[in-house]
Design a protein around this nucleic acid. Sequence first.
DNA 1: TATTGTTATACTCTATAACTATA
DNA 2: TATAGTTATAGAGTATAACAATA
Lengths: 161, 161
Amino acid sequence: MSGMNGSSEHLEKKPADLRGRAEPAGDLPRQAWTLLFELMHTHMRNFPALAAEFDLSPVQAHVLRQLGEGPLAMSTLAAYLSCDASNVTGLVDRMEARGLVVRRSSEQDRRVKRLVLTEEGAALRERLLQRMSEPPEAIANMADEDLCALRDIMRRALCPQ
Amino acid sequence: MSGMNGSSEHLEKKPADLRGRAEPAGDLPRQAWTLLFELMHTHMRNFPALAAEFDLSPVQAHVLRQLGEGPLAMSTLAAYLSCDASNVTGLVDRMEARGLVVRRSSEQDRRVKRLVLTEEGAALRERLLQRMSEPPEAIANMADEDLCALRDIMRRALCPQ
DNA sequence: TATTGTTATACTCTATAACTATA
DNA sequence: TATAGTTATAGAGTATAACAATA
């Protein structure tokens, strides 16, 4: 989608209008969401390359990021990844072989294995997070006013109270 | 995403502080970006499941979305996907076998093959786009004021002139 | 009996390299 | 010689099913 067009929400919606113009039809939430999605989609295309900067697959990068919160059971990690537990075995095998994490058997329930970052894994995670927090062009070029407004809007959306 | 450790610019923030609050450290663009990323990451985890609603793999869904802009050469599609051209062959094989697209040899340059949506492919694409435009909870629940502001900010960011 | 993690199997996505048919 | 697409091969992510150890 390129060529965003500025216009308002009173237009009658025709699906075909979405083709060349990328003008989101529909209600206000849908309009805002479509624009947000456009930005994120463009950015997400680069994520595999970003992960590769650290010799990580996209999923490994995701795991490394999640693992900062503390030791995670394999099953918990599978839930985070929204994938079957059987996949986590091989995934962790590869990360363990590289020395980023270790499996540690739980003493309360010996069926459970918890993942812990190694020192090397923790160091790589810090570099990864730093890199991931670099904003894309479209954000970096925004006016400070818009950035402040955007930040505050997102805070309200993500931490509602 | 929680645990995004912003940067070293204002070092009073400790990683532990980021846990529950999603409070990004660092400069303004980085703060706004980290919050945006948090929202999108949560949402993107559901994309494979969304694609599966239409019996599509995530990449096939992406291709179907791109293909609405008109016939695309295989090589152009590879560029869109940020992947090697050799992968597009098998990908398109599967979509063609399912009747969603057809290969059409270019008459100007007979090395080139362009992809065209079938009627079935176009119909599925419409349903997919409609589904993809459904905003996540965090957006759907936003106040109209914030939604308008967000939409306008994103328009300015995406269509700078 | 139910659950955690593993193994076995199959399919998709991805990269690299070698090949073809055009240009 | 260079380019567009294919084929061959290998590795990684994913799902399902069957299994061992533990609860």
